[in-house]
Computed example of a mutant assay.
Amino acid sequence: MKPWPYPLWIAHRGAGKLAPENTLAAFRLGAAHGYRAFECDVKLAADEQAFLLHDATLERTSNGHGSAGSLGWAQLSRLDAGAWHGRAYAGEPLPTLEAIAAYVIANAFHLNIEIKPTPGLEARTGEVVAQRVRQLWAGQAVPPLLSSFQPQALAAARDAAPELPRALLLDTLWDGWFGMAQALDCVAVVTNHQLMDAALIAQLHGAGWRALCYTVNDAADAARLRALGIDGLITDAVDRFPPAA
């Protein structure tokens, strides 16, 4: 396998559940706990501004309403994406991919970007996110790892910026997943931690791919996966798992 430039421990959505997910505040908190690699979700506004948000709709993690992809950035940028988590974070905005890139690059951190399209915009989201990542990380030694549950998004990312590393996300081992990862020229497969076992890691490593898991919040799960030779652990528990350990 090719050398793997990313740390073992990756902070989920910035700092998981300790701060409002997918915000700069969450990234800062994860960094305060020693994390140097982060996962986040990126989708497109109606005017194709790339920004961080997990859900297709705005209600759960902001004071907005409706489909996030139906609004332009001028509207999205005014939303409060922190108050839902607690008064200390009131006024925290949704961050652009550009803002996250500036923070990550300035601190020499690593990033796993999950391409999270608004339904129906899988290919366009993959294309635009890959193009923006290529521009924002130009000249950097280690670009972000692009991942997605949506093969269409990864295929479009591959076509737009083939040099960027890609990973297929799996919540089940659906028929044809292995061939799809091959067709997408992936460097890694990221699964629900409950799917990962010795046989699957051997299969992935045998193909020359890295094996990563989400969302590993239990010490016993982490120990089991590390003993099996896992290459990446995405966690919410940044306060309980020292990333250097």
Rank of each mutant, 00 (worst) to 15 (best):
P3V: 04
W9Y: 15
K17A: 14
K17M: 13
E21N: 08
T23D: 06
R28E: 15
L29S: 03
G34D: 11
Y35I: 03
E39T: 13
D41C: 13
V42C: 07
L44N: 12
A46D: 11
A46E: 08
F51Q: 01
F51R: 09
H65Q: 14
L71R: 15
L71I: 08
W73M: 07
R78F: 03
D80E: 00
A81F: 10
G86C: 09
Y89P: 08
L94M: 11
L94Q: 01
A99V: 03
A99S: 14
F109E: 02
F109A: 10
I113N: 07
I115M: 06
K116H: 02
P117M: 01
G126C: 08
E127Q: 15
V133D: 08
R134I: 03
W137N: 13
A138P: 04
Q140G: 09
A141G: 07
P143H: 11
P144A: 08
A153Y: 04
L154H: 04
A156V: 06
P162H: 13
P165E: 12
L169Q: 05
L169H: 12
L173S: 00
L173G: 05
F178M: 13
A183L: 10
C186N: 02
V190Q: 14
T191A: 14
N192C: 06
D197S: 00
A202L: 07
Q203H: 06
L204Q: 10
A211L: 00
C213Q: 08
C213G: 11
A219Y: 02
A223S: 14
L228F: 09
G229P: 06
L233D: 02
I234V: 15
V238M: 04
P242G: 11
